[in-house]
Amino acid sequence: MELGQRLKEERESRSFSIEEISEQTKIQKRYLIAIEEHDWSKIPGNFYVRAFIREYAEAVGLNGEELIDEYANDLPSGDDRSYEYMTPSRKNSKASRTGNKIFAFLPKLLVFLLVIGIGFAIWYSVVNFIQPAMSGNGEEDTQEIISAPEQEEEEDDEATDEDEDNGASEEEENENEEEVEEINPSLVVQDVNEDGTPRTVYELIDADSFELTLDTTDETYLEVTTIENGGEPNQPFTGMFSTSDAPLEIELEGESFEVELNIGLASNFDIEVNGIELEYELDPDENVHQRVIIEWENEMEED
């Protein structure tokens, strides 16, 4: 009996319709029908053949891994998907938009500097040439009377400048103290393993909480597994993850956590931890299917 026929008979024995299986697994009906008809050409990639079969089997009460092993010779191997529809990296788009804004601002900046230069030239001409020429015919007594208040004003200005400098120094010292006390969380790569399914281990440091945000611009298979304080694993999400599910936010509080992400299409999948965008250590365009593990231990409470 073929794999697809076995799944179909198991579904019908449980009185499940294709629509019910599609709603439960979030797999499109046309892919489920292709599995039942043993037609792998209608499924977008060989990796998804196994992922869809695993989800289908679990939905009708069968062990997906055992079923895949049993029919391994009937399934396509490798991952021959071309991903021609992939969208450009959003980082490149952001950089492009930033560059365009800078070039658009340059003409205005040049005009502003030109106006300041002309104004300075006019002021310099008045102070050094026009004003001395107009006051040259005046009496010396008048100059002496005028110079005395100017000297007092200069002394007052110097005293005011010293006060301002002292105040500014105190403010800078306070800001420096605040900067020393402020600690920003960061992600550090701990391990990279390219054997089998590529895997990268990150560690979140200098953080008193764990906030995970997952987003995608395409449909991808996703498994999210969390382990709290070394306890039993929990899966807040498993199945096909699409734009209708995004963004998925997971907030964890405790002493330590480990989060493992099994991502089917990493090239269009974004990960943020405590507002930090995770940079893939392994190129997501070359390593489409990969696992990402994020470890966190709340050392802030101990301090």
Rank of each mutant, 00 (worst) to 15 (best):
M1F: 04
M1R: 10
E2D: 15
E2S: 13
E2F: 03
L3N: 10
L3F: 06
G4K: 11
Q5R: 12
L7V: 02
L7D: 00
L7S: 02
L7P: 00
L7R: 00
K8C: 02
K8F: 11
E9L: 14
E9I: 03
E10S: 10
E10L: 03
R11T: 01
R11H: 01
E12K: 15
S13F: 07
S13E: 11
S13D: 13
R14G: 03
R14N: 11
S15C: 06
S15Y: 05
S15W: 06
F16N: 06
F16A: 12
F16G: 04
S17Y: 09
I18H: 09
I18W: 08
I18C: 13
E19R: 14
E19Y: 04
E19D: 14
E20A: 04
E20V: 00
E20H: 09
E20F: 01
I21E: 12
I21W: 08
I21K: 14
S22Y: 09
E23M: 12
E23G: 11
E23S: 15
E23N: 15
Q24S: 14
Q24H: 09
Q24P: 02
K26A: 14
K26C: 11
I27V: 15
I27H: 14
I27Q: 08
Q28W: 05
Q28H: 14
Q28L: 12
K29E: 15
K29P: 01
R30A: 13
Y31I: 05
L32W: 02
I33W: 10
I33F: 10
E36V: 05
E37C: 09
E37N: 15
E37F: 03
E37M: 07
H38W: 06
H38R: 06
H38M: 09
D39C: 01
W40R: 02
W40T: 01
W40D: 01
W40M: 04
S41F: 09
S41R: 13
S41M: 09
K42Y: 01
K42A: 01
K42V: 02
